[in-house]
Write a protein that binds this DNA or RNA. Structure first.
Length: 350
DNA sequence: ACTCTGATTCGAGACGCG
DNA sequence: TGAATCAGAGT
DNA sequence: CGCGTCC
């Protein structure tokens, strides 16, 4: 997932990757790709080798994680927007297929594992987050008064669109291709207790690397993304070098017809452009993914329905009542102080 | 020396009790 | 699933 | 703080 080595490449420039404190995001609206978050949560809870399961045998880890995470974000003064995936685009088929195979392999290895450590390792790797689980998350989130956006295709590109149109300040994700989709900024490790929070602004990248947005997309395609193969022999260094020299993948490939350039590059690294190298479609997709129009989206944070949350978590999913009540108390406090601060600062940005 | 590539390893939640 | 790091190979 | 529990 994401753009291969983009983070590593960006480290070569000063001040492109910025360290941030959680307080910097107080009062800000942040879009969150929920499926990645749920995966992280469920995998993390698998540390012990089991899922949280209710009396029906259904997994409940995702609900606990989303419940806690949402409360803690509100306590920090952050306004989260959760974005759900729709149908994956065809271009992603090959990636999805290989992931399914990976999971299959992991399941097999889990069964074959003879020690506990390995069993847990492959147990984690074979995580599948179901539609049903995501629907349950959506219900809980809405009971908590948090807005939900259902993307027609990928949550990624929808998050980027929200940020581009100024409906949110930025996108919290680990996936660097949010920037390729044109989000003005990415926020990594936002809710991590161990890792430093990092912010990367698209404008800073373009300025420091001296690229325009289209060239940045081409750079990402050369580095390697989910939608397109790469050119063998071209890694971090050459990708950047080629974009700087030729201005685009298109021009680079055209230049290969000129014998001297062709010789230069073939002698240098035997790099060959693969058959069916669909960099054009990929670039188009990054520029114009299928997303919901921001004009049709009205983000609103409303008072949580505390009673229904209790009913949902305790009666329906078997969580411990007093624990959920504690959470709800925190939620109530967070919501009230959020509202208060909001009134004091009428023109908070995103 | 530089760059790409592949293998490997680790860690990814939140809480509270003792 | 990725990200960081290391070893190895190719130029 | 480390470790086990949460369901």
């Amino acid at each position: 997932m994401g753009i291969k080595n983009l983070h590593k490449l960006l480290r070569k420039w000063e001040n492109v990757i910025q360290e941030r404190n959680i307080q910097d995001f107080a009062g800000k609206k942040i879009a969150i790709d929920i499926s990645i978050l749920v995966y992280q949560i469920v995998i993390a809870i698998r540390n012990t080798g089991t899922d949280l399961v209710n009396t029906n045998g259904d997994i409940t880890s995702h609900l606990l994680g989303i419940f806690n995470k949402t409360i803690s974000m509100l306590e920090k003064g952050i306004y989260p927007v959760y974005v759900f995936d729709g149908k994956p685009p065809n271009m992603k088929n090959s990636i999805l297929k290989s992931r399914r195979e990976q999971r299959k392999k992991a399941k097999l290895k889990m069964k074959q594992a003879d020690n506990k450590e390995d069993k847990i390792k492959y147990f984690k790797r074979s995580v599948v987050v179901t539609k049903k689980q995501l629907n349950e998350c959506s219900q809980l989130i809405q009971l908590m008064g948090i807005p939900v956006v259902n993307a027609p295709q990928e949550a990624d590109s929808q998050c980027a669109q929200l940020a581009k149109d100024g409906l949110v300040y930025g996108v919290s994700t680990e996936d660097m291709d949010i920037l390729t989709f044109g989000s003005p900024r990415i926020i990594r490790n936002l809710s991590s207790k161990k890792k430093e929070i990092i912010q990367i602004d698209l404008e800073k990248i373009l300025k420091k690397l001296e690229l325009n947005y289209l060239q940045f997309i081409d750079l990402c395609i050369l580095l390697g993304c989910d939608y397109c193969t790469t050119i063998p022999g071209i890694g971090m260094k050459k990708a950047y070098q080629l974009i700087k020299q030729f201005g685009s993948i298109e021009t680079f490939i055209e230049s290969l017809n000129e014998t001297d350039i062709k010789k230069e590059y073939e002698n240098l690294n035997k790099s060959l452009v693969p058959e069916n190298y669909n960099y054009r479609n990929t670039s188009n997709y990054f520029q114009n993914p299928i997303v919901k129009d921001s004009k049709q989206i009205n983000l609103q944070w409303t008072e949580p329905d505390y009673d229904k949350i209790l009913e949902f978590m305790v009666s329906q999913f078997g969580f411990n009542k007093s624990k959920i009540q504690k959470g709800i108390a925190r939620l109530r406090r967070a919501y009230n102080s959020l509202n208060k601060n909001n009134k004091q600062i009428p023109h908070y940005i995103c």
